[in-house]
Computed example of a mutant assay.
Amino acid sequence: MTSHDRRLYGWCIAALITNMGIIVTGAVVRLTGSGLGCDTWPRCTAGTFTPHGEMGIHSYVEFGNRLLTFVLVAVAIGLLVRCYRIHVTAQLMALAWINAVSIAVQAVVGGVSVRLGLNPFVVAVHLLLSVAIILVDVKAIWLAGPHTSDAADGLTMGLVRATVAMMCVVMWLGTVVTGSGPNAGDSGSARTGFDIETVARLHGISVWITVALTLACLVIATTRHLAMMRRWSMVLVAVEIYQAVIGYSQYFAHLNPWLVIWHMVGVAACAAAVGALWCSVRPTPSPIHNQKP
C-alpha cells in the first residue's frame, strides 16, 4: 500500500459519516413516534416487506431508516474491497471487518427491538453499538490517513482513556434518560420505570465529570506540548459545550423533539471527537535495556 491511499481514506470517512448519520435518522424515527411503523422484522408487516398507503406515514419513516442500513452495508463492502485490493495492514483490515460485521449485528439488534415492542434497554444497546462502530471508524481513518499521534506517558494515556470511558458512561446514562422519558418511539412502548428527574441528574453529573476530564486533557496537552492531543481536546470541549447547551435546553423545554434530534447530532459528534482524542496519543515506547555480557 502507498503511504496514504486516497480511495481507502475516502471509504473510511464514508463509513464514519454514514454510521453517524444513522444515529440521527434513528432519532427521527423515535421522535416522530414511528418506531413501530413497521411492526415486525425483517418484514415491515407480517404480510409484506414494504409499507403501503393505508399503513400511514410512520411506516414510511421507519422503513426509510431500515433502507439506510443498505447504504451502510454498501460502504462497508466498498471499504473491505479496497482493503483487499491494496493489501493494508492487519490492524486496518481487522477494523474494516469489525465495521462490516457490527453493521450486520446492529441490524439484528434493531429487529429485536421492534419485535420486543421497543424495549428501552434493547433500544439503548442499539444506540451504543452505533457509538462503538464510530470509534472503530475513527481509528480506521487514523490508520488510513495522514494523521499522527503524540507519544504520551502513562499518566497522560490514563487520563485520555478515562475521558473516553467516562464519555461512554455519559452516553449510556443518556439512553437511560431517553428510556425513562416520553419519546419512546411509539405511544404503546414500555418505559424503564426509573424516575426521569433522578436519571437526568445522574446524566448531568456524568457530563460535568467528562468535561472536567477533557479540560484536564487540554491542560496536560498544552503544558507538555502535545499538539495533536491539544487540537482534539479543544474540539471535544467545543462539542461538549454544544451538547450541554442543547441538553439543558431540552430539559427545560420538557424534551422538545426537535431539540432532542439536535442532541443526537451531538452524540454522534461527541463519539467521533472522543475517538479522535483517543487516537491522538500513543504510549511512549519503553526503553530497551541491553544486558552487558
Score class of each variant (00 low, 15 high):
A165T: 14
A227Y: 07
T25Q: 11
I23F: 06
L129G: 11
T148W: 04
S34Y: 05
L236Q: 03
T32G: 13
N290T: 14
I241H: 00
R191M: 13
A124M: 11
G188H: 08
G26D: 11
L236G: 03
A216E: 02
D39T: 05
I241L: 02
A227N: 12
G78I: 10
D39M: 00
A271I: 10
Q250W: 10
I133H: 03
H4L: 05
L68D: 06
L135D: 03
H4C: 01
H87F: 03
L79V: 07
L236I: 00
M166P: 00
I17R: 03
G110R: 02
V108D: 00
F63H: 07
T18Y: 08
T48R: 11
V260P: 00
C38M: 05
T48H: 10
A96T: 08
L36I: 02
I209K: 09
V281I: 14
G111P: 10
Q91C: 06
R85N: 13
L68S: 11
A244N: 07
D150C: 12
A227S: 14
C44K: 06
L67C: 13
I98S: 11
F121G: 00
P283D: 06
N99S: 12
C270N: 03
H147Y: 13
L218G: 05
V105Q: 02
G266R: 02
F49N: 05
H289D: 08
C217F: 09
T18Q: 02
A140L: 04
M157A: 06
A216Y: 00
F49Y: 15
T69A: 15
T222Q: 06
L135F: 14
N99L: 03
R85K: 13
M20P: 05
T198N: 05
T163P: 01
L116T: 15
M229G: 09
L218Q: 04
P293C: 05
T223L: 13
T198Y: 09
A152K: 14
M228D: 13
V112N: 01
G247P: 12
A144S: 13
A27R: 07
Q291R: 13
G266E: 00
F252G: 04
A94D: 03
A276S: 14
M93Q: 11
V61S: 02
R224D: 08
A184Y: 00
S59N: 01
P283R: 05
L67K: 06
G26L: 10
T192Y: 09
H263M: 13
I57H: 02
W97C: 07
G53E: 10
I23G: 11
